[in-house]
Each structure stands twice: as structure tokens, then as C-alpha cells.
């Protein structure tokens, strides 16, 4: 039931955008000219391309995120059973968090969390 419903949501989301775009494509006026197709840069023709090698800093944060997000996924099942398992679960997660915290501290000290 839930899985089919999920597919339903995907379909209806695509439908709502698709129908909207087709409808707007039909009713909206279309008049092409070269100036309209220019990218907006405050009214001045652009200099150079926009498809450039961008600063790496942004991506590095994504990599750190990836590491931590995987850890978070490990915490999810623990959080569910924490109440029923009690002390064992708590001790285990303390160990887990200490390791995770050390990782964060390492990244912090390595200035990986600092911009430029």
C-alpha cells in the first residue's frame, strides 16, 4: 500500500509540474530575440563562461557531510531501541559518539571546518 502510494506521489508531482508547464507553454506569449536570451548580469553582456571550475571549499563540506550523515544513519536504529535496551545502548552510543566527536575535533583542528 505505502509503496504504491509513494509511486502515486511521484507521478502526481511530475503531473502537476508537467501539466502546469504545458499549460503555461500554450497560453504564454512567445517572442524570441537575442537580448532576451542573454543571461542576466545586471544589464551588461557577460564576460567569460559560467560553466567554470568552482572553488573546492563548497564540495569539501559536502564530503564532511557525507561522513557524518552515514554516522547519523547508524544512530537512527539506536534511537528507536534506546528506551527498551537501556544501559547497554547508552554505553555503546557514548563510545560511538566519542569516536564521532574525535572525528569532528580532528576536522576542526585541521581547519577543515574553516572557510578558505
Amino acid at each position: 500500500m505505502d509503496k504504491t502510494a509513494l509511486i502515486l506521489f511521484v507521478i502526481s508531482a511530475i503531473a502537476i509540474v508537467g501539466i502546469g508547464m504545458i499549460f503555461s507553454w500554450i497560453v504564454a506569449p512567445k517572442s524570441k530575440n537575442a537580448v532576451k536570451e542573454e543571461p542576466y548580469e545586471c544589464g551588461i553582456p557577460t564576460k567569460g563562461t559560467s560553466f567554470i571550475q568552482f572553488r573546492v571549499g563548497y564540495y569539501l563540506f559536502v564530503i564532511i557531510f557525507l561522513i557524518f550523515d552515514v554516522e547519523t544513519v547508524f544512530i537512527f536504529p539506536w534511537a528507536v531501541v534506546m528506551k527498551s535496551m537501556g544501559m547497554t545502548a547508552f554505553i555503546e552510543i557514548v563510545i560511538f559518539f566519542v569516536i564521532l566527536g574525535l572525528g569532528l575535533l580532528y576536522a576542526w583542528k585541521k581547519n577543515a571546518l574553516k572557510w578558505d
Partner: peptide, 11 residues
């Protein structure tokens, strides 16, 4: 990383 140019203004 590449240096690039961007116009800020007039609009």
C-alpha cells in the same frame, strides 16, 4: 579554481 568576472550593477 578559475578566476571569473561578474558584473555587479548597473541594475
Amino acid at each position: 579554481t578559475q578566476e571569473y568576472f561578474i558584473n555587479m550593477g548597473p541594475q
